[in-house]
């Protein structure tokens, strides 16, 4: 789990984007850990949400992940 979380955060921190689809996170993790399963990546992303390192961004119809403190804030 910790290595998956690290791979997600490495990708999120190095990306120029402020929001990512789940599939972006999954691809980034699979570059580092090719045998990682989508469900494991989701669990790691959920743990990062609970640790308040990642945040959800929702348009209402689709949802993306973002990094806390980067890009949009709750006041927008």
């Amino acid at each position: 789990m910790e290595d998956l979380k690290k791979a997600i955060m490495d990708y999120a921190e190095s990306s120029k984007k402020t929001k990512f689809y789940f599939s972006d996170l999954e691809k980034a993790v699979k570059k580092v850990k090719p045998d990682a399963k989508a469900r494991e990546v989701k669990k790691a992303a959920t743990a990062l949400i609970n640790e308040e390192k990642l945040i959800y961004f929702s348009t209402g119809s689709s949802t993306m992940y973002g990094m806390k403190g980067r890009g949009q804030t709750e006041d927008h």
Partner: peptide, 20 residues
């Protein structure tokens, strides 16, 4: 209206749709 955003309740990625 501005639609979408990062508002929600803790631990949930759905159920709340931001609007301003």
């Amino acid at each position: 209206w501005k639609h979408g955003g990062i508002v929600g309740v803790f631990g949930y990625g759905g159920g709340v749709i931001g609007r301003y």
